[in-house]
Amino acid sequence: MENLAQHHIGLAPHLCGECCTRIEGLEVTLNHHSILEDITLHLHCGELTTLVGPNGAGKSMLLKAILGEVRHGGAIHFLPVSGHGREDVPVIGYLPQQLDFDRDSPINVHDLFATAVSRWPVALWYSRRTRRAALESLRLVEAEHLIDRRIGQLSGGELQRVLLALSLTPVPNLLLLDEPVSGIDAAGRELFYRTVSDLRRRFDLSILMVSHDLAGVIAVSDRIVFLNRRIICLGRPAEVIANPDLRRTFGLDLASLETSRP
């Protein structure tokens, strides 16, 4: 929490453009099936990299490998970022695939933050500091008004913004988003992308986002990685959408993209 306050003061207005995370020759094998092979990918500060690919391409698995949740071959180097007062060990923010929370749970947004960042048992008392920190994070995603709302009462888009705020507490070096907008209406998606896009500049964050919404991410992504067990192609959005394999996979999406956004 203290860290959060520091980061807010020391916002990075410029983009350092350095390589923050280097993934070298990463591979994942589960039950003798190769899930990911030879993934070499560099993530830069202040850049939003989007992972696209068909179902079962290993997109979520790549995020889990970076998080250290699955065993993997190859190497992942996190470069220390100088001048930001951050430590060498990176803070990784993670927004998992659409969570199914128990709708009847008496847990509100404040509790969600308190259980995640504070050790004082929420059963006993609420600390004012935790509440302030939660509000501060929620402000980043325009969701302060939701703090006393029960989680079950949030809409899909609201819930994703709240979870995004949570993944920014404390402000991470690397932010991983796993299909953050699936099942959210167009307005909610728009707002979510706008927020993420602002955040990356404000905090000089490197963001890796998995998405099925190719049409939506083209405008906000700095780079797109087309993944299908290995990296098929990688580059600026305009370069990647020219790839024939990608066009085949996302045929429908692209057709609608070309008609709706000339």
């Binding site: 998992p96 847990i107 259980t115 995640a116 048992p121 929420v122």
Partner: peptide, 23 residues
């Protein structure tokens, strides 16, 4: 139990979210 209360509760909310936060 009170010492572990927040952790246990956050695991119950969503395990992979809790794990990603080292909890």
């Amino acid at each position: 139990l009170l010492l572990g209360y927040n952790r246990i509760l956050s695991i119950g909310l969503n395990e992979s979210l809790a794990r990603s936060r080292g909890r």
